[in-house]
């Protein structure tokens, strides 16, 4: 019974992880890729690691707090990492996709330079 629950968690996890990787390959520019890589991969990994935790807790009767700590850590760091990576990409002049319509950030940089 519990193995079915863990299997379902694992399947959801690999679905989201694969989704993140496919998005990383398919999407047209780096910013859209960061969307896929942070959101989907984070949720997928959370599911997978939680399935591991449940397996050891219920099947093997071993409470491993470190795994829960890893989930917390992934959730805390994923948005920070995404923000720093996208900012460095934008500041070093990686262009947006050619169908992007709006770029307020670039305008603010231009204004700062003009001052």
């Amino acid at each position: 019974m519990i193995e079915i629950l863990i299997s379902i968690l694992i399947i959801i996890g690999i679905f989201f992880s694969l989704l993140g990787s496919i998005g990383l390959v398919r999407l047209p520019d780096i910013y859209a890729r960061i969307h896929a890589a942070t959101k989907s991969a984070t949720l997928g990994i959370a599911f997978l690691v939680f399935a591991t935790f449940l397996h050891f807790w219920i099947v093997e009767a071993e409470f491993i707090g470190k795994i829960l700590l890893a989930i917390l850590f992934v959730f805390l760091t994923a948005p920070v990492g995404a923000q720093i990576m996208s900012r460095s990409a934008h500041r070093t002049g990686v262009p947006l996709w050619n169908k992007s319509t709006h770029d307020d950030l670039k305008e603010s940089y231009d204004k700062k330079k003009a001052e």
Binding site: I22, G23, L27, H35, A36, S40, L43, K99, T101
Partner: peptide, 25 residues
Amino acid sequence: LFIANIDMVKIVLSPSFKHKPGIIA
């Protein structure tokens, strides 16, 4: 977070990428 990921499923698995991305203040 769950709504976000269901959105990502739609975006990534749709055959062509039709959205117009942009940066807003």
